[in-house]
């Protein structure tokens, strides 16, 4: 806020300051990209917001119209066990194939994971559950206007249960970015493709360089 110009700032101070920030950025963001692991390939779009009724032994809970993304080899359902883990069996039917997986619903956590052979391509399926003991509760949302992910309890609709599609082993975030670019290009303007996001990364980098150059010029 001054009218007077002080002595010129040594250029090496400015370069050192910007260089330090850039180095910190590379280290912190690089560490985050390499140190963060992802295994979700998608979900059935139902947030675990409300408790759902229990599943009793001898009954069946089915979730139809599941959109399984490519490379999915596990499902996580929002089911919790009681005081003890509850063994659960899942039968996943897709295009004439049936895969059976077993898991234990952990006490207190809506986190029951079923592992099965990987799907080489995206497909749709129906998952049906049976439990050997009473499953106290599930997580999801009450029936809404949509029909996807409706849980059928002995054939009767009861709510939307939370389903996550997973891929094991998990990947770090950096290696997940190319798939992210393909996902991001969906439901966009016609010309947008995965390449747009790589170009965008370069454009943002270019903006940083242009901005810093403007600052340096103003200091000259």
């Amino acid at each position: 806020m001054t009218q007077e110009q002080p002595r010129a700032v040594p250029r090496r101070w400015v370069v050192a300051a910007v260089g330090t920030v850039a180095l910190l950025f590379v280290l912190l963001v690089g560490g985050w990209l390499l140190g963060t692991h992802v295994r979700t390939t998608g979900t059935n779009s139902v947030a675990p917001r409300y408790p759902l009724p229990a599943l009793a032994p001898g009954h069946r809970l089915c979730v139809a119209n599941l959109d399984l993304p490519k490379n999915t080899n596990a499902l996580r359902l929002g089911l919790a066990g009681g005081p003890k883990p509850v063994p659960v069996e899942l039968r996943l039917v897709t295009a004439g194939q049936t895969r059976v997986a077993h898991a234990e619903a952990p006490p207190g956590r809506y986190d029951t994971v079923f592992h099965f052979a990987r799907f080489d391509h995206a497909t749709t399926g129906t998952a049906c559950l049976t439990a050997r003991a009473t499953l106290p509760s599930g997580a999801g949302q009450p029936l809404g206007d949509g029909s996807e992910g409706v849980a059928l309890y002995d054939g009767k609709p009861q709510g939307l249960i939370t389903v996550a599609y997973l891929h094991y082993p998990s990947r770090n975030l950096l290696s997940a970015l190319p798939a992210g670019a393909r996902h991001a290009a969906l439901f966009r303007a016609g010309f947008v493709g995965a390449w747009t996001y790589w170009l965008l990364a370069l454009a943002v980098l270019g903006c940083w360089i242009a901005g810093i150059r403007v600052m340096l010029r103003s200091l000259a």
């Binding site: 998608g42 139902v46 993304p69 939370t162 599609y165 969906l186």
Partner: peptide
């Protein structure tokens, strides 16, 4: 078509399959 409006309001917990077939 996006089928994401409800989904993505809870993005940390849910994620659409981002399936090209849906597009």
């Amino acid at each position: 078509g996006l089928a994401t409006f409800r989904t993505l309001q809870f993005a940390p917990e849910t994620r659409p399959p981002w399936n090209p077939a849906a597009q």
